[in-house]
């Protein structure tokens, strides 16, 4: 029971929706600590993971989430699916619809593909990452992880560091942070900043070392060599020196400050190996939160769906 029957963009969610997802996820986190990590909640429902772009961790996370709720999880991956044989998204949607699925998680290299799929299908659609647009469940799990460690979200300053331009993680996280009353700060080389960062509603700072002492969270983005055209910075070494998180910069954060990364990490580029393994780096907690948060999203989308007004 969220205000939308799809999760396509953080912009579709209200502050109440986000609070609801985070609270429900807390209950699911408890399930993930049990020996028997399975609930009968979504028994008989079918979740299709339509991943038309390579992904292992997000797909696995959604798959585990669905299976722990007893839903049947089916994976369609890019290389194995008919899309490489030329099938259009419209035909894929019709095919999945004919198989009577209840929820589709889609990852696609084009922004807006999940919205298009949602318009064509009767079931709920969750955006598992679309092009350079959004990755809403990643932002939700990031909020969950931050709140778990720092005890609150409101009033925090979260620095998002690196390739803002190509990052759908940043796209969702900035919107989500603003909804919960935190302050996003975009940090990175000018060549990797969107041309209109003001549209996102975040401050832009070009010098990482200048803002570090004021940040509660340093969120390091992955250098996405597969998305960037040409070379947006002179060398990997220069990037690491100017924008990478290392032991010295970790020391410049306030003592409660934490480091996050959506993974997979390029060790030695945006984050040094010693920081990645430090107790103040929450990379693995993020992965852990991912399963609980995705369980919560599936539960809230698929539960209560048969009746608008419950008795």
């Amino acid at each position: 029971m969220l205000s939308s029957r799809h999760v396509l963009s953080i912009a579709d969610l209200s502050a109440d929706d986000i609070a609801r997802v985070l609270e429900t996820a807390e209950s699911f986190a408890e399930v993930n600590e049990r020996r028997i990590k399975k609930l009968p909640t979504l028994r008989g429902l079918t979740v299709i993971n339509l991943f038309l772009e390579p992904s292992t961790r997000t797909r696995t996370s959604f798959e585990i989430a669905a299976k722990r709720l007893s839903a049947d999880a089916i994976n369609f991956s890019a290389s194995a699916s008919a899309t490489v044989k030329g099938e259009s998204l419209r035909d894929t949607a019709a095919t999945l619809g004919a198989m009577a699925c209840d929820l589709v998680v889609i990852r696609h290299r084009f922004a807006g593909a999940p919205r298009m799929l949602a318009d064509m299908m009767d079931c709920s659609v969750v955006n598992g990452g679309d092009g350079m647009h959004e990755h809403p469940t990643q932002a939700l799990l990031d909020l969950y992880t931050i709140r778990q460690r720092l005890g609150k979200l409101e009033g925090l300053r979260v620095g998002i560091v690196g390739d803002i331009l190509h990052s759908r993680v940043a796209g969702s996280l900035v919107r989500a942070l603003r909804i919960v009353g935190a302050t996003p700060v975009l940090i990175g080389p000018a060549t990797l900043m969107p041309s209109r960062p003001d549209v996102l509603g975040a401050d832009v700072v070009l010098d990482l070392d200048e803002v570090l002492p004021s940040l509660d969270v340093a969120y390091m983005l992955r250098v996405q060599s597969e998305r960037a055209s040409g070379m947006p910075f002179p060398s990997v070494r220069e990037y690491a020196a100017l924008w990478g998180m290392n032991a010295a910069r970790l020391g410049a954060l306030p003592s409660h400050g934490i480091v996050m990364h959506p993974g997979p990490m390029n060790r030695g580029v945006e984050i040094s190996a010693d920081v990645a393994d430090d107790t103040r780096s929450l990379v693995l907690q993020q992965v852990e939160a991912g399963v609980a948060v995705r369980m919560a999203v599936m539960y809230l989308l698929l539960g209560g769906a048969d009746s608008g007004a419950a008795a």
């Binding site: 029971m1 609270e23 429900t24 807390e26 209950s27 408890e30 399930v31 609930l39 009968p40 909640t41 979504l42 709720l69 539960y299 809230l300 698929l302 539960g303 209560g304 769906a305 048969d306 009746s307 419950a310 008795a311």
Partner: peptide, 17 residues
């Protein structure tokens, strides 16, 4: 999470077990 009517109604508040 164990209700037999999850499909028709959701508890407004979920607590921790």
């Amino acid at each position: 999470f164990y209700r037999d009517d999850v499909a028709t109604r959701l508890n407004p508040e979920v607590h921790r077990t």
